[in-house]
Amino acid sequence: MKPEKINRIALVLLSAAALGLPLVVRSATYLHILVLLYFYAYLTTCWNLVGGFAGVLPLGHAAFVGIGAYTSTILSLQYGVSPWLGMIVGGLLAAGVGILIGLPTFKLRGAYFALATIAFSEGLRVMVENIDRLGPFTINGPRGLQIPPLDTGLTNFMFAGKEPYYYSILVMLAGVLFLTYRISRSKLGYALNAGGEEPEAAMALGIDVARTKLIAMALSSFLTALAGTFYAQFTLYIHPKSIISLDLSFEIAFIALIGGRGSIAGPVLGALLLRPVSDFSRIYFGDTLPGMHLIIFGVVLILVMNFQPRGLQEPLTRLYQKVVNRLFHWGALEAAR
């Protein structure tokens, strides 16, 4: 068997497992945890377009989640617009905001860029918390918006059980992973990587680094906002603290750094590792040691950065390659016999 074929079989098996999981996992709690796991893997994959490929460290992506969630929710509650349409509107709005943030901040380096993005997203949260009505739109300040679970069904992006949500976010995750894969092998991907690693050399080689970063930022914020709509429809209740919080932005960065930024598998691996830690520490220590998961994240991050600075994806990818090679040679031997 050729390595490519083994890769394809592994991918098919993985997809089958992901599709079949709700048949095995019947508990609503566990399904909920899985949905959030995919949700974070999705967000981190979007973040990775900027934070990984473009080589900067944005720490304000929660702002885009918030823009997506609020836009589609306000449109559906007050104007009866389908959340699917609201999702696109929110995405476009977020992309515009992403470009506006990117224009001045991409000139900043390292920590300064990170701080600027934090400042922006915190600013947005404080504004939303303090505004009850913005023109014709009801925002409801800190009380947030509740979506009454009346008309369930696909057109309203609202379901009675957890399974439809599971499949929605799974499809979204698969889509964004495929997109990332394609981008990483395209001119844009090469330009982003080059500009992130050695901007001066990239410019000399014909790359308008600032422009490619803006394209990545627009794409990343658009896709991130889509997840915001998903989250609103999934929990049916959004408020500034839940959705534009720094916790959310930080958790995305944690997942990316530990999983491996700039790689395709990294965000998914990071979410697989950290989300259960986050959820179970909340279940078991929620009343005694709230915030325990952040301490655990910190410790894991220190360990990973010390021993695997490129994240967990690197040793795992190497291990996988080894297994594939072993299978390939074993297959060749069998065939020769």
Binding site: K187, Y190, E197, G206
Partner: peptide
């Protein structure tokens, strides 16, 4: 200023994309 984490081929491909 090589793109140090990438392969030689990757580096040259960045140029070729011009």
């Amino acid at each position: 200023k090589p793109f140090a984490s990438k392969s030689v081929l990757y580096n040259v491909m960045v140029g070729a994309f011009a």
